[in-house]
Design a protein around this nucleic acid. Sequence first.
DNA 1: GATATTCTGGACCGTTCAGTCCAGAATGCA
DNA 2: TGCATTCTGGACTGAACGGTCCAGAATATC
Lengths: 197, 197
Amino acid sequence: MARPLEFNRDAALDRAMRVFWRQGYQAASLPDLLAEMGISRSSLYAAFGDKRGLMLECLDLFATRTLQILARARDGQPPLEALRQFFDRSVVDPPGGKAEWGCLLVNTVLEMADVDDGLSAHAAARLAQVQAGFEDCLRDAGCPPAQADELAAFLMLVNQGLRVSSRRAQPLQARRDQIATTFRVLSAAIPTEASST
Amino acid sequence: MARPLEFNRDAALDRAMRVFWRQGYQAASLPDLLAEMGISRSSLYAAFGDKRGLMLECLDLFATRTLQILARARDGQPPLEALRQFFDRSVVDPPGGKAEWGCLLVNTVLEMADVDDGLSAHAAARLAQVQAGFEDCLRDAGCPPAQADELAAFLMLVNQGLRVSSRRAQPLQARRDQIATTFRVLSAAIPTEASST
DNA sequence: GATATTCTGGACCGTTCAGTCCAGAATGCA
DNA sequence: TGCATTCTGGACTGAACGGTCCAGAATATC
């Protein structure tokens, strides 16, 4: 009944996600977050509980966005080509800056393992959802279930590796080559109609 | 000329490396390190400068050990089989506990990117040395130079991915399968005499 | 055994952290 | 216009951080 306005919660969450994405959970201080989100301490604690709760929501948001990117790539395109496009996009799309930030889920799994197992496990679970998305895609491409499972795990392996590469100083072309190698090698292993090249 | 004894510097460094390996740079507090190393604050600062200097030495130690493992695997064994053994060992060898800690270099590249670029770059440079070791191995296996470069990058990609997997809750068998898939797929791509399977 | 030199335990420092709290600003309703 | 209610900036708190310092323990030489 009074002062119904706040800030835009979704926008603030999006900003917070970028801070965690770039700096990691521990190095993202409250002042860092507040400055980027453009709100004050009280507002953050009222809206998100605490730093850890905010992080959990950021992990969910990141996973949702990742799954959306995959779903969009699948729209009206052969499944293998969709996967290739997903990987290409993941390497080329810097969030705005000049340097890549990798994958928030991968970053968090590594940073928080043996530090906050709950956070690490939460990120790992979201990563498993993405892997399930790969598997779905491969079944669509004609893989028998057992092989779809195996190759989805392999694709997740490559995805994880790429996200590490993107935080090393490697030039963009090197990562593109790694993707090309992966799909060249992968196409040869799939007994269905292969994608281009 | 007086009190020449200290603690064993190498042993202390080895202990410190394990703490950084398990917990990461930021979460490893001085009390954590001192307790594990069994020395006191003064001794640490006298011997290693500061926390960051200690970390740099730990990164070097880890890289040296990793290269030694690869060199030992190459001894009297076909190069491709040596690579496979290197990966198998890296997955099976837990440092003592029940959970895997991944790779200190990979962990550090991710954790410290955009937080302490110097540390991240140092770890990345050591990772490049390991990649050069892969490349050397592949040339030995009969790969032409250009392909050795490409496949070494691919192997490093897989290595990075595996180190992430090992910090997720995935069962050991899943990671073994990922390695098997990788080498099955890799063998098909090498135009030399392939390794077993 | 005395002394000079080096090492070590632990108290101490300023800084920064995540989280709490309250006074005051802002708004919907009457 | 005035009140009830909700939001917000910023001061504040206790704890933990990395790093410094010094008094005292320990030893090689004489």
